[in-house]
Write a protein that binds this DNA or RNA. Structure first.
Lengths: 209, 209
DNA sequence: GTCTATAGACCGATAGAC
DNA sequence: GTCTATCGGTCTATAGAC
């Protein structure tokens, strides 16, 4: 990838690649939406092709299987999460950083942009674990959250009796918490109210303080 | 169905019905196990028949569709829940009753006996909502929990700022909380420890008190 | 001999793959 | 746009109870 100022030629292949990239982005966005709306099992690749407006065969030029489609959507949301983490003020208190992340995942879910996968599907698990992009993203995010969790426990803002892993999993679980959709379906609360309610039960618990 | 003391004949049809009932119980138990293990979509009715050790056609003598199989499993777990509720001491404090129920659902899940259904499947939803057994059970359980929640909020043991519905949904969500399986998969905790951890995050929250 | 319930082949539709 | 596998659901011949 060495470039000099004398080689503007590069723009032509770049244009083709750009189109390819744009279509891939459109595919992933469609997959992301459908995964959020109906989940992996209920999503068909015909739907994906129809939503993107391309032939099913073209899909397979980009992604070798349905699992890889889902994986690409997960990588995308992981990158968005990493971008969000990077956008946080570096000097925030650890508990505030953690809360900001939790709130962000819930907003994503309420906006219908959080892909949901069945946790039991083994072929899907295998695809995800074989994806370096996915695993690296997951590990980096977990490391970052893990450091904040430990810092928050050290300063006494998060319950130090909890194993950091349990805190981490509890945060991840909020990203696919069915309580959000149930409360939304009840029609009694605004999105903002729903998020505040779940934030409260998550961080303050059900018991009165 | 008029019977007199002169008609001991009645034991014969009763025996037949008993066998029929026993097989139905076996079917539902198998469905329950498979639903807990792999979920509704991944479960095939061939598997169910194989697990019970009967022919698939015989399954359809008892239950007209796969959805009805799942519904029967849900009714079963609902009845177990009702039996558990009935077994609780009537004089317990509301918060303790609620905690006992939460703990019970988690134990069921860790034991691999909590059937899990996709919340988006519409034909399944329709079957469940058309089942009087299911709906009545669900409503009775919700009513009971609802009364305890309001009592606990009145006496100040559960955060009175939370809408009772939000508390109810939060409790229901613990019955299918993925945190349990994740913590179990980590191999670092016993079942009892996992339950205490999730009970703590649920009722006391992540923040230190 | 009749009748019920079973076993297992079979069908049609759907969806993933190419 | 075709191929094939899978799966929900059905059909039929048969075995066994009475």
């Amino acid at each position: 990838m060495t470039e000099t100022a004398l080689a503007p030629v590069r723009t032509k292949p770049s244009f083709k690649a750009q189109m390819l990239q744009a279509r891939e982005d459109a595919i992933i966005a469609a997959v992301n939406r459908l995964l959020a709306e109906k989940g992996f099992d209920a999503m068909t690749v015909d739907e994906v092709a129809a939503e993107v407006g391309i032939a099913k065969a073209s899909l397979y030029k980009h992604f070798p299987s349905k699992e890889d489609l889902a994986c690409a959507a997960m990588v995308r949301v992981m990158r968005r999460a990493q971008a969000f983490l990077a956008s946080l003020p570096a000097d925030g208190r650890p508990l505030e950083q953690i809360k900001a992340v939790a709130r962000w995942t819930m907003e994503l879910q309420l906006a219908g942009e959080m892909p949901s996968l069945p946790s039991q599907n083994s072929s899907l698990r295998a695809t995800l674990m074989n994806s370096a992009d996915y695993m690296n993203g997951l590990i980096e995010i977990s490391d970052r959250l893990g450091r904040w969790i430990e810092a928050a426990q050290s300063e006494g803002s998060i319950n130090p009796a909890l194993p950091p892993l349990a805190v981490l999993y509890t945060l991840y679980a909020r990203a696919c918490d069915p309580v959000l959709e149930f409360l939304k379906a009840s029609g009694q609360f605004s999105d903002a109210q729903i998020i505040e309610l779940v934030m409260s039960t998550c961080f303050e618990g059900l018991e009165a303080r």
